[in-house]
Computed example of a mutant assay.
Amino acid sequence: MPYLPDETLFSAISCFTYSELCLQQFLSRLIWLGNQLGLNFKGIKQATWFSLVKANKLSSLVDWLDWQLDDLSNVPNIGKKQSEMIIRQFQLAKKASFSQWLNALGMTGLPESIKSYCWQELMRWDIKDWQNKLSLSTKRATLYYQLAHEIMRTGIANTLIKIKIDGF
């Protein structure tokens, strides 16, 4: 029988930052972040993310945004050539669209109309605004509202704002 996580500990809005308890969900979030529906990282797979987490390089989903080649020099199982490829992919992610970033952070299935808004606007919305402006059900609007506020609470949004990611 497959392992099911404890629903009292984990949810759609948990594990945006690393802790030993959150290892599996945090890794899943990193893998999703880099998949082709997210930021579309080439050559960065689960083993790479695991090596970075275990080398204490990641405590947040976006710690890598300001990395240079030297930041990867002492990570086990990651050589110079792979480090160069990883940094190249991370640099490309800075050019991703606002909607790509939202999807990469787990806010999947948002309507195309999300492109006409920016992060600062989303932060001012209550659940009714999410419903009305994006034609969402109460359940979906509540989830997006919670996700947005968790992304803000964990400092991820502030990092994206500081790096000047589109829409943030």
Rank of each mutant, 00 (worst) to 15 (best):
18 Y>G: 09
134 L>A: 10
61 L>Y: 05
53 V>P: 09
79 G>Q: 05
117 Y>A: 02
5 P>D: 02
39 L>I: 08
143 L>A: 12
62 V>T: 07
147 L>R: 14
145 Y>M: 13
11 S>V: 03
145 Y>W: 14
48 T>W: 00
78 I>S: 14
107 M>K: 04
42 K>L: 09
111 P>G: 11
19 S>L: 07
46 Q>D: 07
13 I>Q: 12
2 P>E: 03
5 P>L: 03
118 C>L: 08
11 S>T: 05
160 L>K: 02
40 N>S: 11
54 K>T: 09
80 K>Y: 06
74 N>A: 12
111 P>V: 08
83 S>V: 06
98 F>P: 00
161 I>A: 15
132 N>E: 07
78 I>R: 01
97 S>L: 04
128 K>A: 10
76 P>L: 09
58 L>T: 09
93 A>N: 06
131 Q>R: 14
113 S>Q: 14
145 Y>V: 10
82 Q>L: 10
116 S>V: 03
123 M>Q: 14
130 W>K: 02
63 D>K: 11
43 G>M: 08
124 R>M: 15
87 I>P: 00
79 G>H: 08
167 G>C: 12
78 I>W: 07
135 S>F: 13
101 W>F: 08
130 W>H: 03
87 I>Q: 05
159 T>F: 06
53 V>S: 15
45 K>L: 08
142 T>P: 10
164 K>H: 15
86 I>D: 00
50 F>G: 00
69 L>W: 09
41 F>W: 10
98 F>V: 06
48 T>M: 03
103 N>G: 11
27 L>V: 07
91 Q>T: 05
55 A>I: 03
68 Q>W: 02
142 T>E: 12
117 Y>K: 10
84 E>Y: 11
22 C>T: 05
50 F>P: 00
69 L>T: 04
83 S>R: 02
134 L>F: 14
47 A>W: 04
102 L>C: 08
28 S>Y: 09
21 L>I: 05
3 Y>F: 12
53 V>K: 12
19 S>V: 08
71 D>Y: 06
160 L>N: 01
67 W>Q: 03
133 K>P: 06
116 S>F: 07
85 M>A: 13
79 G>K: 10
91 Q>I: 08
93 A>R: 01
54 K>V: 03
72 L>H: 04
12 A>M: 10
88 R>M: 09
6 D>S: 11
123 M>N: 13
29 R>K: 15
38 G>K: 00
120 Q>W: 06
112 E>L: 08
33 L>R: 00
57 K>L: 14
146 Q>I: 05
154 T>A: 14
42 K>Y: 06
39 L>F: 02
115 K>C: 12
104 A>H: 01
44 I>H: 09
99 S>L: 08
109 G>F: 07
31 I>E: 14
148 A>K: 00
124 R>K: 14
145 Y>R: 09
15 C>I: 02
70 D>V: 04
146 Q>L: 15
37 L>I: 04
102 L>K: 00
19 S>G: 14
123 M>S: 11
